[in-house]
Write a protein that binds this DNA or RNA. Structure first.
Lengths: 134, 134
DNA sequence: GCTAACGAATTAGCTTGGCTAAAGACTGGG
DNA sequence: CCCAGTCTTTAGCCAAGCTAATTCGTTAGC
């Protein structure tokens, strides 16, 4: 029963992840761009902590995105060791486009539900959010 | 709002996937083992279709798992081109342990919820299941 | 104010796991 | 028996994870 819920969530998320596509970015690169869009400019260390990845891994992903012109590095004015990373305009545009497409896909799935079913999901959202807390 | 739900589910599943058996398997390898546990012995083609990966990718993952003794290949008795892949005892044991850990993790998360919140999740389960349908 | 310790980012080298292209192995229809 | 189609495998590319070690800037102790 509990395990049934767990498996269902896993299956749903799996379907969702497979729905990727859009730009020719991998999920990691997209994840970084989205983190920057949601949380604003951050250091490499903050990014790697949030994405649960080591600093060297994050550094490489950031290199690729920088080479693609989707984000930019800037030295921190307070601490010369740190590097502040932020989206470029192109990066913002790509995140917006991706969000639009994924929302559309999800809305399409939701449209197969009844009003009552949607209300049930709406009620479950805060609980799911609580489960997902760090 | 819709996109909040989508993002929350993704985050929850992401957190869940981090719970796995001690063995140092990547998520893909674990995914293959779980698919075999749930759906039974399958050909390489069936596996790659189900995991939404190309046959060469699946072939390599299967090679690693075979080298670790977690699954075994056998020729199909009906069609010499096909290869039937199935879990070994060690593979079954590893899947069981992973399931045990994930269930325990999830139960732990659920225990922080009130009875009402659990009831809300219970009501949402069939709806989530519907969303997750293929 | 020097120096040693510490912290943040980076580089180097390894591994997994995607992909495409192409080759082998086998089947089945004509 | 051949030929076209199907399934698996090999080869080679690239993204993205890791650890270990390096570089460079900061901070603390003396």
């Amino acid at each position: 029963m509990d395990s049934e819920l767990r498996l269902t969530i896993a299956r749903l998320a799996r379907r969702m992840r497979q729905e990727r596509a859009e730009a020719d970015l991998g999920p990691s690169q997209l994840g970084v761009l989205i983190a920057l869009a949601v949380r604003g400019p951050q250091t490499l260390g903050e990014l790697s902590t949030h994405e649960r990845v080591t600093a060297p891994s994050m550094n490489r992903t950031v290199n690729l995105l920088e080479a693609s012109g989707l984000l930019a590095r800037a030295a921190s004015p307070f601490d010369g060791r740190k590097v502040i990373i932020d989206l470029t305009d192109a990066g913002h545009a790509l995140v917006d486009e991706t969000k639009r497409r994924r929302d559309a896909w999800f809305a399409e799935r939701l449209s197969s539900l009844s009003d009552h079913e949607r209300a049930v999901l709406d009620a479950a959202l805060p609980v799911l959010r609580k489960l997902a807390e760090e």
